[in-house]
Simulated scan of single mutants.
Amino acid sequence: MTTDTSVDQSDDDRTRDDANRLIVLLRTLLAESSDIVQHLEATTGLRFSRLQQSFWPVLDQARAAHEALAVSAAGVELAPPRAVASATEAHVILARRTEAMASGSRPEPCDDYIVYRLGRPDPAAQIGPQDISPPPLPPLPEGERPQCGKETQTGLPCRNRVQSIEGRWASGCERHLDDHEKAVYEREKSQGLAHSQALRKAQQAARNKAASVTAHRWLQTMIAVSTAETSLAD
C-alpha cells in the first residue's frame, strides 16, 4: 500500500510558515508594546522604568525563540542533547547548534543573526551629530595622542596625554594648558556638552514620535475591532 505524503508535506510547510509568521508577529507586538510604554511616559509625565526594562529580557527571549524555530525547521545538524527533558527548549536548541558548528558543521542561512532582524530601525539612528546645531567639535588630530611631558611638582615629566583643541593637539594636558589654551578648552568642552545634550534630546524626540505613531495605530485598531464587534452584536 502506497501512502501519499504530498498532503502531509504541504501541511508541514504551512505549519512552519504559520509558526514563522506568528513568532514575527509576537516579536513585533512585544517591540511595539515597549513603544506604547514610552508613549505613555511622554504623554502622562509618569515614569514606568521597571515596566520598560521588563521588555528587554522578553524581547531577547522572543528573538531566541525565533532563531530556534528557524533552526529546527531547517533540519540542520545539532549536537546531542545533554538532557532529554530539555532537548527542545529554545535556548538548548541554539546551544546544540552552536556546539555542532564548533565541531565542524557547515554554516547555514538560519545561522545568520541578520535573518532575525525585525526591520524596525531605531528612529534615533536617523539623527546624527551633523544634524544638530551648533555643529560638533572638530575631529581629533591624526596620529597618536602625545604625552604632556611638562614638569610636575615632583620634578618628573607629566605622563598624562595632551588635550585636543581647535582640531589640533594642545601643548599639554588639562592641568598644564596655558591660559589661552585653557580658555579655548573650557569653551569647547561647554560646546561639546551642549551639543551632546541637544543630540540626545533630538533622538529622544524621534523615538517619542515613532512611539506616538504606534500608539495611534493601536488605538485605531481597537476602535475598528470594537466597531466590528458592535455591528456583529446588532
Rank of each mutant, 00 (worst) to 15 (best):
D112L: 09
V37Y: 02
A62I: 03
I36T: 10
A95L: 12
A64L: 14
R63Y: 09
G155I: 03
Q52M: 06
P81A: 00
Q53Y: 03
Q52A: 15
A125G: 13
P134G: 07
D60S: 12
Y116I: 03
P146T: 11
E142C: 03
L25Y: 01
E108P: 05
S164Y: 06
R159N: 08
A83F: 12
D111M: 02
G143P: 05
V24A: 11
P138T: 04
A65I: 07
L78G: 06
R82W: 10
Q126S: 15
L22S: 13
H91L: 12
N20M: 09
R97E: 09
Q130E: 15
V92F: 08
S34A: 14
S103G: 15
I114F: 11
L69H: 04
H39F: 14
I36E: 08
L118C: 04
H66L: 03
A31W: 04
Y116V: 01
I132D: 07
A65G: 10
R63E: 14
Q61A: 15
C110A: 12
V24K: 07
P157C: 00
L46I: 02
E77F: 10
Q53W: 01
S34K: 06
E89D: 15
E108Y: 02
Q153M: 06
Q53H: 10
R159L: 09
T152P: 11
A42G: 05
V84D: 15
P129C: 01
E77Q: 14
K150N: 11
P80I: 00
S103A: 15
L22E: 12
P109D: 02
Q53N: 13
L137S: 07
N160D: 14
A100I: 04
S49F: 02
G155Q: 07
I114C: 05
Q147Y: 10
E151S: 13
Q53K: 10
V115M: 13
R120V: 14
T88I: 05
E77L: 08
Q126C: 06
P129L: 02
L69T: 04
I23Q: 07
L137P: 06
R97W: 09
A31Q: 08
R161K: 12
S133V: 13
L51Q: 08
L40Y: 02
I36S: 05
L26S: 01
A95M: 11
T154C: 02
I36Y: 03
Q38E: 11
A42P: 01
D112I: 04
S105G: 09
A124L: 03
G155F: 07
D112F: 03
L40G: 07
E142M: 07
E67R: 10
D131V: 03
A31V: 05
E89M: 12
E89N: 15
T43S: 11
D35Y: 02
G143C: 10
R117P: 00
Q126R: 10
A42Q: 02
I127H: 03
D122K: 00
P157A: 00
I127W: 01
R106M: 10
P139N: 03
S103D: 14
L51R: 02
A70P: 01
A124F: 00
R106H: 08
Q147H: 13
A64K: 08
Q153W: 08
Q61M: 11
R161P: 00
H66E: 11
P134F: 02
S164A: 15
D111S: 01
A102N: 11
